[in-house]
Design a protein around this nucleic acid. Sequence first.
DNA 1: TCTATATTTCGATAGTTATCGAATTATTGG
DNA 2: CCAATAATTCGATAACTATCGAAATATAGA
Lengths: 114, 114
Amino acid sequence: MNAEITIRALAALAQEHRLAAFRLLVQAGDAGLAAGAIADSLGVPASSMSFHLAQLGHAGLVNQRRESRSIIYTADYAAMNGLMGYLTENCCAGVPCTEDAGCSPAATTERNAA
Amino acid sequence: MNAEITIRALAALAQEHRLAAFRLLVQAGDAGLAAGAIADSLGVPASSMSFHLAQLGHAGLVNQRRESRSIIYTADYAAMNGLMGYLTENCCAGVPCTEDAGCSPAATTERNAA
DNA sequence: TCTATATTTCGATAGTTATCGAATTATTGG
DNA sequence: CCAATAATTCGATAACTATCGAAATATAGA
């Protein structure tokens, strides 16, 4: 994780609808959510949501997979952990004051995490 | 920490010079750094840096104090911790998978933290 | 008070980002 | 192949953000 990637991730999250969408996906776990479901849930037009999901994808914060007619988005926990790490790695003059600011999927469906 | 404040903090950090400045301040600890020192260090004109520092201040990520002719900026660790908390609090369907994503000052100068 | 130093505010300009309807592409079932 | 569903791309517009020199403000010392 370098400055450029970090900035892209921060910029991606620094927007009302994208932050809300990302949080929905973080909660959804591996199951993820379809683009349309996210748009409906947030009351945002499909084309606008598509634009925002593309930004999150470009920042590496979400992944997508096709499932029949739907595109299912999932949060990329590794990317989120990398972001957290970058923001804390120089914390307190290089002395790491937190080793795990981590997060892994599972939970929701209790299935075996990737 | 709510969505609006989080977005302001994320937006503040999502900029090359501001992210760099914030990281310098995180490393500097309580001692902080003067506006001019940051500008010099990053090779950014004083007026531009002032604009960026104001953004960080408005987002609550840094504090400032006057010391003679200089304005000393310091990182606000509480705000940073709040940001981290907001980004992880809904992680894995509400099950907290990390309790301390925290960071406290001290370290650099080893003096008693405020 | 005058001068030097440190920083911020102002103002103009260029670049980037968000918005959303309409058109387009992809998939499925009959 | 046709109709229905799901999502993306396109295009125009409005709003916001970064930039930096010049001018203004604040502090300190002689």
